[in-house]
Design a protein around this nucleic acid. Structure first.
Length: 653
RNA sequence: GCCGGAAUAGCUCAGCUGGCAGAGCACCUGUCUUGUAAACAGGGGGUCACGGGUUCGAAUCCCGUUUCCGGCUCCA
């Protein structure tokens, strides 16, 4: 009995009984038959969501199908990258007898495979050429990916015989986690050449579909991501349909390296790191300008929104950390020191400090909300292996604030925090993604409290008509939170802000306010950071702008260049006048060629270069070159200064 | 913290199998007086990360430590 399937354009196709995706492709045309890699099958009437299948899989009658080809984008790339992972495992298994294989999925930009190499043999990037050569042999051999369904015990016995312990463990786990009403009877294996792997699939028809591949790096990775389990050796690679796409990808990686904030930080003399204080940036004069401009923005914007700035110590009696719960939950990440037999701890968070100030007075409901902001310096002992330039540091200056408010005020305050955040991000052109994290399994407080807290956050998000992802169970132990993530100009994601409801600290520190009913009430704390930390945010800015900081943030906004030493006088005058106009201008009247001075200013990514020579001296003007190379001759200095002042004032460039 | 790799002048890097520590840029001095991304010449600059070991001899080989890089775990 023939079957009928529906194609994406709505037309239907009649196929013989037991027809496969490959049959469907052939029925549509020989070109598609050659190009097809897999098929996406759904069966809406049977309530089945779309799933990718091998071309050799039988199609169910009445299914909707879509053939996947190299042009199908991400799905297609994932397929051949998964293929490439199997080819990598094939090659490594041949070259390193006794290696144990574990898992090898496709990932965002490529794929990896985790191996357990026999005792005493490791692999480094030096081995890549040999492995790649062997992989190429598999690709050139056009091996078929053959799927077989085998009974669980048979598969288990197979991998046990081969001493593939990780595969045996995976099978055992699959059996254990199966629905008791539908016990697992078979598992699928994929074979290419003489290599067989436990794998759910799907795969493309054969290894020749991997047009271009490259191994990239080797790294350690815990088996199943569990630090108490064995560390495996992970080999990363990537694959594309064409060599050209692979080359473009490698080019993109090069460009990302060129905008690495650690490199730019050194080249632009913004900051440095020193062994004497690992994980703590030393801000150099140029970096300090950026820091101060950003801080000024933060201070000005906070003041406009009813925040009062405070400043609190960094060193506290350990008793405070016992009371706050940090001693219990966070001790390993804190720094302690004992002086005159009193143990003191460096603060890893500012909240207990702001609480002290809240408690300086008796508070009335009329005082609420109380909003304290602080560029709070905290220290966290981040594990040595996680430090990363400005993006992961031990010395952290948070753009912190704590809002003490009544429960009724929570939603409105959260709304204001979100609006504030969006206002700030818009200045830099950042697009953000929101995540709402709700009650975790380990938590304090009543269910009623959590209901109200989550409702307040949800209410704020909905009232602001903001799209968000839900992260059930990912909230802090003391309350739910909204996290704000940005995607930078090369597609990477960073967490910036966080807005957290906190019902724990007010309890632990017995915070109160007197209500209209003359009774004592418990305030709620909102813990919020919008930039995240100044260190991290500046790191992100550097990468976002590839070092070409906007005028208002640029450490040096312009350089006045004399054509020769003869024009040092008028050039110095111009620089002086711009400096008096509040602009950060330097003078370069050295006896060097104009070309050289231009080149040096360009390398420093200075926004404006003003050239003063014969003509300019005569006309009382300057020639303006912007860092993108555009030029204007005969510009009047007053006009330029006014224009730049305006750009700086509204931070428009 | 764990796995792997690296550390040579301020920066980027060369230095082969153990045999006198180098280049370019930067810096200093001099000449040139420059018109939109590198004028020319000369000069100074090193505990080869640190500590131990092997060796007649170590930047080079071995062990340990520190820091950094790429991941993993973590990021309250």
């Amino acid at each position: 009995m023939p079957i009928r399937v529906t194609l994406p354009d709505g037309s239907s196709l009649l196929l013989r009984e037991h027809a496969t995706g490959a049959d469907a492709a052939a029925a549509i045309g020989p070109g598609l038959a050659r190009a097809a890699l897999a098929v996406r099958v759904s069966h809406p009437e049977a309530g089945e969501a779309p799933v990718l299948r091998d071309l050799t899989a039988e199609l169910p009658d009445g299914a909707r199908i879509e053939l996947i080809t190299a042009k199908s984008g991400r799905d297609a790339l994932q397929l051949i990258r998964h293929d490439a992972a199997h080819v990598l495992a094939s090659a490594v298994s041949e070259l390193y007898p006794g290696v144990k294989i574990s898992i090898g999925p496709p990932i965002e930009d490529g794929f990896y495979y985790d191996f357990d190499f026999p005792e005493g043999s490791t692999v480094s990037e030096d081995a890549f050429p040999a492995i790649e050569e062997r992989m190429r042999a598999h690709v050139e051999a056009s091996e078929r990916f053959v799927r077989t369904e085998v009974p669980v015990q048979e598969a288990r016995a197979h991998f046990l015989r081969q001493q593939q312990d990780y595969k045996v463990e995976l099978i055992d786990d699959l059996v254990r986690s199966a629905d008791p009403d539908a016990p697992l009877r078979t598992v699928s294996l994929y074979r290419n050449g003489s290599f067989t792997d436990l794998c759910r699939g799907p795969h493309s028809p054969g290894t020749e579909r991997i047009g271009a591949f490259k191994l990239q790096s080797v790294a350690g990775a815990y088996w199943r991501g569990d630090p108490s389990r064995k560390m495996l050796t992970r080999i990363y690679g990537t694959a594309f349909f064409t060599h050209r796409e692979l080359a473009e990808h490698i080019e993109r990686l090069e460009q990302a390296r060129a905008r690495d904030h650690r490199r730019l930080g050194r080249e632009l003399k913004l900051f440095s790191f020193h062994d004497v204080s690992p994980g703590s940036p030393f801000w150099r004069p140029a970096g300090m300008v950026v820091w101060n401009e950003l801080t000024a923005l933060w201070r000005e914007q906070n003041a406009q929104r009813g925040y009062e700035e405070v400043k609190t110590p960094i060193l506290y009696d350990v008793e405070l950390w016992r009371q706050s719960g940090h001693w219990e939950k966070y001790r390993e990440h804190m720094y302690f020191s004992e002086v005159e037999s009193r143990v003191m701890g460096l603060k890893p968070m500012n909240c207990p400090a702001h609480i002290q100030i809240y408690k300086d007075e008796r508070r009335s409901y009329r005082d609420l909300p109380v909003r304290y902001s602080e560029a709070g310096l905290v220290h966290r002992h981040e594990a040595s292996g996680v430090l990363h330039g400005l993006l992961r540091v031990r010395h952290i200056t948070q753009d912190d604030a704590h809002i003490f408010c009544s429960e009724e005020q929570v939603e409105e305050e959260v709304k204001q925090c979100l609006r504030f955040a969006f206002h700030l991000y818009a200045i830099f052109g950042f697009e953000v993604r929101l995540e709402l994290s709700t009650r975790p399994p380990q938590r304090i407080g009543s269910e009623l409290m959590w209901d109200r807290a989550e409702a307040a956050l949800t209410g704020a998000l909905e009232a602001e008509r903001l799209a968000y992802e839900l992260n059930p169970g990912d909230g802090a132990f003391y309350g739910p939170k909204i996290d704000l993530h940005m995607t930078d100009s090369i597609g990477r994601s960073w967490q910036l802000g966080t807005v957290q409801l906190d019902y724990s600290m007010p309890e632990r520190f017995d915070l109160t306010y007197t209500g209209a009913d003359n009774a004592e009430h418990r305030p709620v704390m909102i813990h919020r950071a919008l930039l995240g930390s100044f260190e991290r945010f500046i790191g992100i800015l550097i990468e976002h702008y590839a070092g070409r900081l906007p005028l208002w943030l640029a450490p040096v906004q312009g350089v006045v260049l004399s054509v020769s030493e003869r024009f040092a006088g008028p050039a110095a005058d111009a620089a002086d006048r711009l400096r008096r106009a509040g602009l950060r201008f330097e003078l370069d009247a050295r006896g060097e060629s104009v070309s050289r001075k231009i080149r040096e200013a360009e390398l420093r990514k200075v926004p404006y270069m003003l050239i003063v020579g014969e003509r300019e001296q005569r006309d009382g003007t300057v020639a303006v070159r912007e860092r993108d190379g555009t030029q204007r001759a005969g510009v009047r200095l007053e006009q330029l200064a006014a224009d730049l002042q305006r750009q700086v004032a509204d931070r428009s460039s």
